[in-house]
Design a binder for these strands. Structure first.
Length: 415
DNA sequence: AAAACATAGCCTACCACATTCACTT
DNA sequence: CCAAGTGAATGTGGTAGGCTATGTT
């Protein structure tokens, strides 16, 4: 497992880069991600202090540890006392900020005493970062050159939250407990592309303001015009707590898996028999609501970086280019569907969307989802090529020369 | 309200064999 | 120490069957 840096193998890993699917020490993180403009765009976050292998998405203030979704779930959901711990979202970042700069955005690199002793930590403090002139540390970071440092912003804009409430049908959301931060400065990123991705910006999301937004919603449009996604939401969903409230959520969905299957109502914290409505219920429950396909259920693939998931879900402009567009598209569709179908968010009363249109949209979505192939990672292309031409009987490989009922090349049978 | 049944969807084992890996010579 | 040889392990994709969840009666 990932205690050690995947790159140097010597230092303890601190940072997780999803784009590289690697856990890195801070030193290697910097060296790797300062290599070129593209790598600087990789979004990283801390590695879970508990499992040391998954990206952290939340930080327990009491325990002073950063946790991945799974470890948070295991550590906090089951314990009443632990579930009351104050939690804080862990941000992602890109570019090459210094350790100090990271700490200002909620990436507490030095709290873990075990980390503090490492040479890596020492390197961190002495590291020279070319673009370390970060200003406006807070919810957004902006380097002076406006290029390299960007950080996911939190939902800290009352206006945006209101919009979100509206969009989600606030009247039906049980005790949605959104606590906006006091930071009310406009959040934005210097980098135009990054800004496009993450910053809710100050621009009013016309869709939300417009009463016709909901009724005009069309699944295909969402699929095709995802660049407007941030406008659809008007917020960056980096902090699920702030989106859904962290206290009162007692029902949730789960995503069955990543294999292209439909996700559905799966489990709740209540179902787990643990404290309902207590503590920081930031967990898979919310995640699915944000990104159905990007989220893996704890059943099949328990570890997941929630913040990354959200990031993926909302980073539609494809800046990073690591995830396929289909995922984003489906995320959007899933989200919309969810919002519609979830008991919290029944169809907006203002909506005049005909039921036939809706069912059409659902049908299109399902067909699309069915047709879509999740990007399974093929490690050995040669083996795949081999399997692709191999003859089968009822799906099973057959010996060369044996009778077969399926030949990928000729689509014929031997009997 | 509970039970029985139907349906839909997900998960996994299975197959052959080229390739990869670890170990020995 | 390096190269060659050997054997075990791995990983490909389509399908069937089992399982689970959900919906209907």
């Amino acid at each position: 497992m990932g205690y050690m840096c995947d790159f140097c193998g010597e230092q303890r890993s601190i940072v997780y880069c999803r784009s590289d699917a690697a856990s890195l020490c801070f030193s290697c993180d910097h060296s790797v991600h300062s290599a070129n403009a593209l790598s600087r765009r990789h979004f990283r976050t801390l590695v879970c202090d508990r499992c040391n292998s998954q990206p952290a998405f939340i930080r327990c203030v009491e325990e002073k540890i950063s946790l991945c979704q799974n470890c948070d779930w295991l550590g906090h959901a089951g314990s009443t006392s632990a579930s009351r711990h104050q939690m804080q979202a862990v941000n992602c970042y890109s570019g090459c900020p210094s350790a100090a700069e990271l700490s200002t955005i909620g990436l507490f690199l030095t709290d873990d005493p075990s980390v503090g002793d490492s040479t890596c930590e020492k390197e961190m403090s002495s590291m020279r970062i070319s673009d370390k002139s970060v200003t406006n540390c807070g919810d957004s970071l902006q380097s002076k050159d406006g290029q390299d440092v960007s950080v996911l912003v939190k939902v800290n804009d009352l206006k945006n939250i209101d919009k979100l409430r509206f969009w989600m049908g606030s009247s039906s959301m049980p005790q949605l407990n959104i606590k906006p931060k006091t930071v009310d400065q406009p959040v934005g990123l210097a980098n135009s592309t990054s800004s496009k991705m993450f910053s809710p910006g100050t621009k009013k999301p016309a869709h939300c303001e417009d009463d016709g937004f909901y009724e005009d919603f069309n699944m295909d449009e969402v699929d095709l015009n995802i660049e407007n996604y941030d406008e659809l939401f008007g917020v960056a969903l980096n902090n699920p707590e702030q989106l859904f409230g962290n206290d009162e959520i007692d029902s949730s969905f789960g995503v069955k898996d990543m294999s292209g299957a439909d996700w559905k109502c799966q489990g709740t914290r209540a179902a787990e028999g643990s404290s309902i409505g207590q503590g920081n219920a930031v967990q898979p429950a919310c995640s699915n609501t944000v990104s159905a396909d990007s989220v893996m259920s704890s059943k099949t693939k328990p570890n997941l970086c929630f913040s990354q998931t959200i990031q993926s879900s909302l980073s539609f402009s494809g800046l990073t280019g690591e995830s396929n567009v289909g995922d984003y598209q489906e995320c959007s569709a899933s989200l919309m569907l969810l919002m519609e179908e979830h008991p919290w968010c029944p169809p907006c009363p203002e909506s005049s969307l005909p039921s036939t249109s809706r069912s059409d949209a659902v049908m299109r979505y399902k067909e699309k989802k069915k047709a879509r192939k999740f990007d399974k990672k093929v490690r050995y292309a040669s083996r795949k090529a081999r399997a692709d031409v191999r003859r089968r009987v009822k799906g099973r490989f057959v010996k060369a020369g044996d009778a077969y009922d399926y030949d990928p090349l000729s689509q014929t049978r031997s009997f």
